[in-house]
Design a protein around this nucleic acid. Structure first.
Length: 367
DNA sequence: TCTCCAAATATACT
DNA sequence: TCAAGTATATTTGGAGA
């Protein structure tokens, strides 16, 4: 059963409390204070959710995704700041450039999100984990020297373990998990710590009596498959054994581009809804153009005032990157939502997918 | 009944 | 209690082979 796996050395770099760290860097007077970066809806005051907070804020119980009002009640002295996404994107781009330059090659880099990435250094470190650790330290220093923010690094034989290693010691840590240490590294962890297992899967596993990764690792695959289906069941078994053959995705961007925002008030007022929709579509088109991609399908999301979410999507006969087509189609879909339900809308979103390079074909008239 | 693929929902993470 | 935003993965269901 043992499969032949080509040995690899994968590094995962995770910026420490990224948004809050950048705010601290930009305004040194924030040092020593609890800093909470919030995503405010456009409903004024403190309606919104916490995006990131620094460690002083976390000590008082503030967490990502927590409603800002609750965060405020937990720590009224904390500094609450609105997200400045564009600034963070700029910093992110610089950090990613550093990381990319440390990878074996173009394919050996994968940006996971604005503040984390994988790089493969199998060749550069000649598969030697001591050399790999030195490289990790140098990468941390380079980021610190250039951007004056810290990160945590995990080094391991695959993405799964590297990702988990980077969160093992935070902030400003480095954790190396050699191939022979993978099993011991995972053994004592609760299943929730496995990257890819969230609340839902955790609870389902509890129901069949599995709490730790080692219990999961020794669980019968067939039992997992009967509870979770073939692909997820097998994934769980392999992940618990520290196996993850997935390659890095190279430098390609996301497969989807989306925007979502709250209405000022819960409403089903058409001009209000379409005004916001138009704004969101503008942003999506700008992003798509910047990436030089066409899209072939789109999805409209509505979150109703009771927080129930509903989506409708549409696939076009061919890929385009056209604001008017997107707007007209999204409008049609939105009208359906209005017909089908009498409930007020709280948030709406637009997303385009099925992205393809726009090089070659110019526009729909070429067809 | 199998396969493809579009549509809708579920899940994860910050 | 109050409750944002972005992205990916999985499931569902209908049409054609």
């Amino acid at each position: 059963m043992e499969q032949f796996i080509i040995p690899r050395v994968i590094v995962h770099v995770d910026m420490d409390y990224f948004y809050a760290a950048i705010e601290e860097r930009e305004d040194p007077s924030l040092r020593g204070k609890a800093v909470v970066v919030c995503m405010y809806s456009n409903r004024g005051e403190s309606s919104g959710a916490v995006s990131t907070s620094n460690y002083l804020a976390r000590e008082t119980g503030i967490r990502s995704a927590m409603p800002c009002k609750i965060a405020r009640s937990k720590n009224p002295d904390a500094v609450f700041l609105p997200v400045r996404k564009q600034l963070y994107e700029q910093v992110s781009e610089k950090v990613m450039t550093i990381l990319r330059s440390n990878a074996d090659n173009e394919e050996g880099f994968e940006k996971v999100s604005i503040d984390e990435a994988f790089i493969e250094i199998t060749e550069s470190c000649k598969n030697d984990y001591d050399i790999a650790k030195d490289m990790g330290i140098r990468i941390k220093e380079e980021i610190k020297a250039n951007e004056n923010i810290t990160c945590s690094v995990g080094i391991a034989p695959n993405k799964l373990i590297a990702k988990m290693a980077s969160s093992f010691q935070k902030p400003d840590g480095i954790t190396v998990v050699r191939p022979n240490d993978v099993k011991d590294f995972l053994k004592p962890m609760p299943v929730k710590k496995l990257w890819g297992i969230g609340k839902v899967t955790e609870e389902k596993l509890y129901e069949i009596g599995i709490r730790t990764v080692s219990e999961l690792a020794s669980c019968d695959v067939m039992e997992l498959i009967s509870s979770f289906g073939k692909s997820k069941g097998m994934w769980l078994k392999n992940a618990a054994n520290g196996e993850d053959p997935t390659p890095l995705k190279g430098r390609k961007g996301a497969d989807q581009i989306g925007r979502m925002a709250s209405l000022e008030h819960d409403s089903r007022n058409e001009s209000m809804i379409f005004l916001l929709l138009n704004e969101l579509i503008g942003d999506v088109i700008v992003k798509a153009e910047a990436r030089k991609v066409y899209f072939r399908s789109m999805t409209v999301t509505v979150i109703f005032s009771d927080f129930k979410t509903s989506t409708k999507s549409r696939t076009l006969s061919h890929a385009v990157c056209d604001r008017n087509i997107l707007m007209e189609t999204a409008k049609e879909i939105m009208n359906k939502f209005l017909e089908e339900s009498a409930m007020n809308f709280r948030r709406i979103g637009i997303r385009v997918e099925d992205l393809q390079e726009s090089t070659g074909q110019k526009n729909i008239f070429d067809f």
